[in-house]
């Protein structure tokens, strides 16, 4: 019997192959020739309608076509031929930059504020209603307000990333800080450790796994939201790329973009998962 990991990998490959074959089958044409839907069609109309009508071929590209295009896109990801034709790498870099800036600001705000909320029952109760109301707002609902006040569309997208990634980190940090074991705090107290040193040497390491959980949820949400935000603000970024290719009716490029978004999101999550493993301690 093969080890579980190997069996799982084999099964994954099998599922992929079945999926690709089904895709290939579904998008293959009827084979043209007689009996196709184009029979008897006005030639000019048929020309207008393209292959979809004349040979029954789907507008959906086959996996082979997507693979070929993917190779072409990935082999030259950083070309720049004007505002409407940039390489996928450039678009991805714009999106990543926005996410990292917005997310970075959110970390800088949420973790200290979470500490305050977690350590002070007064602040916790005072800020709770605001958090409860602000948290469920769809980040995109902020967009008009952001565009009006900030005026710059790129910065507005960064703001939307900030506002959507701040809540999970804030709540997790506050929870992690508030649930640090009393006995660990008592150890620090009996050793006369000052409040600032206590925050860094006891509370931070004790709450770190919970904080990292919040950070991981946040980066996932930020990556979900950036695509939608860029579709709205336009100009650059992977979200804009998707919408632009939809307007070009290049389903192949849309599929490639979807794939790239998925892989990038997974990588961001894995980076934080690795950090989380480093700060997690067994009890």
């Amino acid at each position: 019997m093969l080890p579980l990991r190997l069996r799982a990998a084999l099964l994954s490959v099998l599922i992929l192959v079945v999926f690709l074959l089904a895709w290939q089958g579904a998008t293959a044409g009827f084979g043209g020739g007689g009996g196709g839907p184009a029979t008897g069609m006005d030639p000019e109309y048929a020309k207008l309608m393209g292959l979809t009508a004349t040979t029954g071929k789907s507008a959906m590209p086959s996996p082979v076509e997507v693979g070929r295009q993917l190779w072409a896109v990935l082999s030259d990801p950083f070309y720049d031929k004007g505002p409407n034709d940039k390489g996928l790498g450039i678009q991805l870099a714009f999106s990543l930059a926005r996410v990292l800036i917005g997310y970075g600001i959110a970390v800088a705000v949420a973790i200290p504020l979470g500490f305050v909320i977690g350590m002070s029952p007064l602040m916790s109760r005072a800020l709770d209603p605001f958090i409860q109301v602000l948290k469920p707002i769809s980040p995109l609902a902020w967009m008009p307000l952001a565009l009006y006040t900030i005026k710059d569309s790129g910065i507005s997208a960064v703001f939307v990333i900030f506002i959507c990634s701040v809540w999970p980190m804030l709540l997790n940090t506050a929870f992690g800080v508030a649930s640090v074991r009393k006995e660990w705090l008592n150890v620090a107290r009996t050793l006369e450790v000052g409040p600032l040193k206590r925050a860094f040497t006891i509370i931070l390491p004790a709450a770190a796994p919970t904080i990292l959980t919040g950070m991981r949820i946040s980066i996932g949400i930020a990556w979900l939201v950036i695509v939608a935000a860029e579709m709205l603000v336009g100009g650059t970024g992977i979200g804009y790329f998707v919408w632009n290719e939809w307007n070009n009716l290049s389903i192949t490029n849309v599929i490639i973009a979807i794939l790239v978004i998925g892989v990038m999101g997974m990588m961001l999550d894995q980076i934080l998962a690795t950090v989380a493993r480093l700060v997690t301690f067994p009890e």
């Binding site: 006995e183 660990w184 050793l191 040497t201 301690f281």
Partner: peptide, 28 residues
């Protein structure tokens, strides 16, 4: 208030789980 003049041995030992044995003692 608490003081380094009086050391407590806790029932639940209250070690800091992210520090090693040496780290726990050295912290004190």
């Amino acid at each position: 208030g608490p003081s380094l003049d009086r050391a407590v041995i806790f029932q639940s030992h209250a070690l800091l789980p992210w520090k090693s044995v040496l780290g726990n003692v050295a912290y004190a």
